[in-house]
Simulated scan of single mutants.
Amino acid sequence: MQALAGEILAIVGPSGAGKSSFLRLLNRLDEPTSGTVLLESQDYRSITPPELRRRVGMVMQTAYLFPGTIAANIAFGPHQRGKMLAPAQIEGLLERVGLPGLADRDVSNLSGGEAQRVALARTLANEPEVLLLDEPTSALDEASVRDIEELILGIVRERRMTCLIITHNRAQAERLAGRTMVMQAGRLARIGATEQVLHAG
């Protein structure tokens, strides 16, 4: 299976099918027992885990933010690599995710949708090539879902990123993804154009 730059690939399947485990394998939160994952034609086991996770960013179902300000959260990843983000860079990321002027707000005062936007901005601060999204809208109200979807679409197009998104919402897969893969019992059952895969008999 190959995912392309600028592509959004949806991952669907029943609970327990292995969707989240698959994403965790892709940035080595879990280690594969067999097979090979290539990032830009390079075996990803030859890349250090910190560098891999910078290049392959992941946003979870629930936004796990560190206590403190939004700015501190966004600056965390680059700081780990010895890179300091200027306030203007942090503000630029916040503007991109629709939260301008909130750098100094404490993360404890965010709604679910705002927290997911901060989690996305924090991931983007690392300038990843690949974005892994594990049901990023499942805990949000419908209006926030559509807002986050538009945000994902815009960012993937702008940055020509590869994006894999787990979703239980087939309509969401149709709105976002050109291709969809179906997982069953820990295996790839089928993959293809979203409309064809989701409406297969």
Rank of each mutant, 00 (worst) to 15 (best):
D30G: 12
L38H: 01
T36D: 03
G201A: 14
F76H: 12
D30E: 15
D147M: 07
Q2T: 10
S15I: 11
L52W: 05
A125Y: 05
T137S: 13
I11D: 02
T162A: 14
A189L: 05
Q89C: 11
D141Q: 07
T48E: 15
L198A: 10
I152N: 09
C163H: 03
A88M: 01
M84D: 15
D104G: 15
T33L: 12
E95V: 14
V107A: 13
R157D: 15
R24Y: 07
L38S: 09
S144G: 02
A189Q: 08
A71I: 02
T180V: 07
R190N: 08
M181P: 12
V37T: 12
T162W: 09
T180G: 05
P50G: 13
I70P: 01
E31Y: 00
E91P: 06
L102V: 02
V37R: 03
R24C: 06
L102Y: 03
P50N: 15
P14L: 10
N73H: 11
R54H: 11
L9T: 03
L94V: 01
I166V: 15
Q61M: 10
A10V: 13
Q172I: 07
A185H: 07
E127Y: 05
L176A: 02
E150V: 10
I47N: 13
I155N: 02
Q172R: 01
V97L: 06
I191S: 10
L23C: 10
K83E: 13
N27W: 03
V107M: 04
L151K: 01
T162G: 11
Q196I: 14
V197D: 11
A125D: 03
G82V: 01
E51S: 13
G77F: 01
L23T: 00
G113M: 01
L23I: 00
G18S: 09
M84G: 10
P128Q: 06
Q61C: 13
E7I: 08
S34V: 07
A17D: 02
E95A: 12
A193K: 11
E174P: 06
R175E: 05
A171F: 04
G13M: 01
